[in-house]
Amino acid sequence: MDNKRELISKAMADFLEIPADVVLDLPKLTITGRNELYLENHKGIIEYSTSRMRVNLSRGYLEINGEGLEIQALMPDEMKVIGEIDSIRYLD
């Protein structure tokens, strides 16, 4: 059921050329250099330490590895992470 709705939403978004992050609640990442990450549409924090961070998404989660990670700002659906970022991975 959910899968069907998602497919319809995606088709609508494609057809109407509406950004997917708005319609499908997909995460949107903005990375400046390797020290600053801005993430929209997150669903909370699963794990946080200075070297590894996992952020819940609408589907799956995002893993950020690095050094000296710090959450500079945290709001209900957006967050800004600073620190030396090594890798970003999507996981299910």
Partner: peptide
């Protein structure tokens, strides 16, 4: 952190 987030408490500079 997640509870604060859910209740709309704005927190920052989390280290």
């Amino acid at each position: 952190i997640n509870l604060a987030l859910a209740r709309g408490i704005y927190i920052w500079d989390i280290k």
